[in-house]
């Protein structure tokens, strides 16, 4: 059932929910971006509809709520270990369809990939997802080609239309709240994108042989290895560990899990001094093939959800979608049936 609410009524819903849930949504951090007086859109706690940014794409994804950039897992002293506490409240996360598809990938990696990951699972179990209706694609989006433009597995759906809030509920708790604060409307379904300005096509016969293509070489020089593409990506999940020994007393400390990037120096460092993929083009190859080849080999569907954040955030204007569109030619090159 769909519901229509005034923004005031929706704020009452959020206030009611706020008793049990911490509510997270993309929001504007004024002046919070790289350059002076440029806003950053990223996830933060919200208390009102007005705080939810629906006009602009978020620069960073919801991912950091389930996989914080830096997360203390446990504290240790000489003989004891104490797990770090987890957020007390449950969480509601507002997100677009591409990101809701990204949740499936995170679950695949952290819950269904051998033993479930304890720290991911204890956060994941707290979350309800509210789909943000997406009436139009942004310039760099390519969700339609990645098949992530539409989602049905939400707890509730949300959309602003003409200053009114439209909601749909699947979770009984939402249904009850919306019946109380909203008026029923027939036939509301959240908007979804049906075409995107950016299109991608990935060769059906893409294989590891493409690693030998020269297509990667230009990124040796173009890419600066900063890792923004990974940190902004909703499906990049690599982490590294840090053991900290407190400076006042090195017998106590903590273990942290920290986001890692396959584009940044140090990612492949191994004991004994080994290090691999030193060239940035090699790192680009690794990242691209992980997103559109390796993951699919293992799980049967693509890892990349086509949100385009990596394109938006790259300071060197390297476009991931443009690379995907070079793969056909790269395959021709390594098959030897291209123009070469």
């Amino acid at each position: 059932m769909g519901y229509r609410l005034s923004t005031d009524a929706m704020n009452q819903v959020l206030a009611e929910l706020g008793k049990q849930y911490a509510i997270y949504a993309p929001k504007c951090y004024p002046g919070g971006n790289t350059f002076s007086e440029v806003d950053c859109i990223r996830y933060g706690e919200v208390h009102t509809v007005e705080e939810i940014e629906t006009e602009r794409k978020s620069d960073y994804s919801f991912k950091e709520l389930l996989l914080p950039f830096s997360e203390t897992l446990f504290f240790f002293t000489e003989n004891t270990i104490q797990e770090a506490s987890v957020i007390e409240k449950d969480m509601v996360i507002f997100l677009r369809s591409c990101d809701l598809h990204a949740v499936r990938r995170l679950d695949e990696i952290y819950l269904r990939n051998g033993l479930p990951d304890f720290y991911y699972q204890r956060l994941r179990e707290k979350v309800q997802f509210v789909l943000i209706g997406c009436p139009a694609a942004f310039d760099s989006c390519f969700c339609v080609d990645m098949g992530t433009n539409r989602s049905d597995n939400y707890d509730a759906a949300f959309e602003l239309r003409g200053g009114q809030v439209y909601m749909a509920a699947r979770h009984p708790q939402w249904e009850a709240l919306l019946r109380q604060y909203g008026e029923p409307v027939e036939g509301f379904a959240p908007s979804y994108v049906t075409e995107t300005p950016t299109r991608v096509s990935i060769p059906a016969d893409l294989s590891p042989a493409v690693a030998k293509s020269t297509v990667w070489d230009e990124y040796d020089k173009r890419c600066i290895g900063c890792g923004r593409c990974n940190y902004a990506c909703p499906t990049c999940t690599c982490f590294t560990m840090q053991d900290i020994y407190y400076t006042d007393n090195a017998k106590a400390g903590e273990r942290r899990r920290v986001a890692a990037s396959c584009m940044v120096d140090g990612f492949t460092d191994v004991a004994g001094g080994g290090s691999y993929r030193k060239k940035h083009g090699e790192r680009m190859r690794f990242k691209v093939l992980h997103k559109v080849y390796d993951f699919k080999q293992r799980n049967g569907y693509q890892m990349c959800v086509g949100c385009g954040r990596c394109d938006d955030v790259c300071p060197e204007y390297i476009s991931f979608s443009a690379i995907l569109n070079k793969l056909e030619e790269a395959m021709q090159e390594v098959r030897g049936d291209g123009q070469q």
Binding site: Y29, G31, G32, S36, Y60, C226
Partner: peptide
């Protein structure tokens, strides 16, 4: 100078609201 902010890939470094 803001080089830390400009080079930070995660927004751990941001600019002060005050200039």
């Amino acid at each position: 100078c803001g080089e830390c902010v400009i080079n930070c890939p995660t927004r751990a470094w941001t600019r002060s609201q005050e200039q």
